[in-house]
Amino acid sequence: MSAARLPQRRARGLAAVEFALLLPLLLLLMIALVDVARALQAQMILVNLSREAANLSARGKLQLAESAQTIIGQVAASAPPLDMNKLGMIYITRIMGSTSGGTTKSIVVEQYRWDDAAKNQGFRASGYAPLSKVWNCSNWGSGTAGTCVVPTGSTAPVVSMMSGQLIDGEVIYVVEVYYKFNMLFQSFSVGSFSTPALATDFYSMTVF
């Protein structure tokens, strides 16, 4: 064997060893990138769901009490690859401007969450019900499933959303969509570098 070929073989062997050492790290980075791509896709789907549900709520011909579960079920059915029935929740909140004593406040008139008794979907199937960020209902137990018993009159709940911006009797619809996303990597760190941990409850809100 010529002496010239020995350095070439040694270089190839060294490259193979380096590649073998780097391969696990490269695979880890690739999986992390795929995980982030999945998370971005999930967030985009949630944004579309909240927009569509808010649009249907505002433009629906039926009363919201009659159509809320139908609207929620329809938009949730368009969510694949997300499994909304096991890992998702949707709230629809109707807010109205109310003027009293020269001051206009935003009050909650209605609130619904996904809880379809007829189709066994939503809360009764998953038990997943993160708190609404608009207003947290404390009385889901009585009345129709998925319908909050909202106090009325002087005890009607006042919220900060659009406070002072709605005229008396003006109505807006707020749709919140949650999804319990299972991240493969909650955070990733190499030496002094680390990525921020992503929340497991993905969220999107649309006001219409």
Rank of each mutant, 00 (worst) to 15 (best):
V109W: 01
E110W: 02
E110L: 06
E110P: 00
E110T: 10
Q111A: 05
Q111I: 01
Y112S: 00
Y112E: 05
Y112V: 08
R113D: 07
R113L: 13
R113N: 08
R113H: 15
R113A: 06
W114M: 12
W114N: 03
D115N: 15
D115A: 13
D115I: 06
D116I: 01
D116W: 00
D116R: 03
A117Y: 08
A117D: 15
A117G: 07
A117I: 10
A117Q: 15
A117L: 13
A118Q: 14
A118P: 02
A118I: 11
A118M: 07
K119N: 15
K119W: 11
N120M: 00
N120K: 10
N120F: 04
Q121L: 14
Q121R: 14
Q121F: 06
Q121G: 01
G122N: 06
G122S: 05
F123K: 04
F123L: 13
F123T: 04
F123D: 00
R124F: 04
A125R: 08
A125S: 12
A125M: 04
S126D: 11
S126A: 13
G127Q: 08
G127D: 11
G127W: 03
Y128T: 02
A129E: 12
P130I: 09
L131R: 10
L131A: 14
L131C: 06
S132M: 10
S132T: 12
S132N: 10
S132Q: 10
K133S: 11
W135H: 08
W135M: 00
W135K: 04
W135P: 03
W135V: 01
N136C: 03
C137E: 07
C137H: 05
C137P: 13
S138R: 02
N139Y: 13
N139D: 15
N139E: 15
N139C: 01
W140M: 06
W140I: 06
W140H: 02
G141T: 15
G141I: 05
G141N: 14
G141A: 15
G141L: 12
S142W: 04
S142I: 10
S142H: 06
G143F: 06
G143A: 07
G143P: 13
G143T: 11
T144D: 02
A145F: 02
A145W: 00
G146L: 04
G146A: 10
G146C: 07
G146Q: 02
G146F: 05
T147N: 11
T147I: 03
T147G: 00
C148G: 06
C148D: 14
V149I: 13
V149C: 02
V149T: 15
V149Y: 00
V149G: 05
V150P: 01
P151S: 08
T152G: 11
T152R: 08
G153E: 10
S154H: 01
S154W: 01
S154Q: 12
T155I: 11
T155W: 05
T155L: 13
A156K: 01
A156R: 07
A156M: 09
P157D: 00
P157T: 05
V158C: 09
V158T: 14
V158N: 00
V159Q: 01
V159H: 02
V159K: 02
V159R: 01
S160L: 12
S160V: 10
S160Y: 03
S160I: 08
S160A: 15
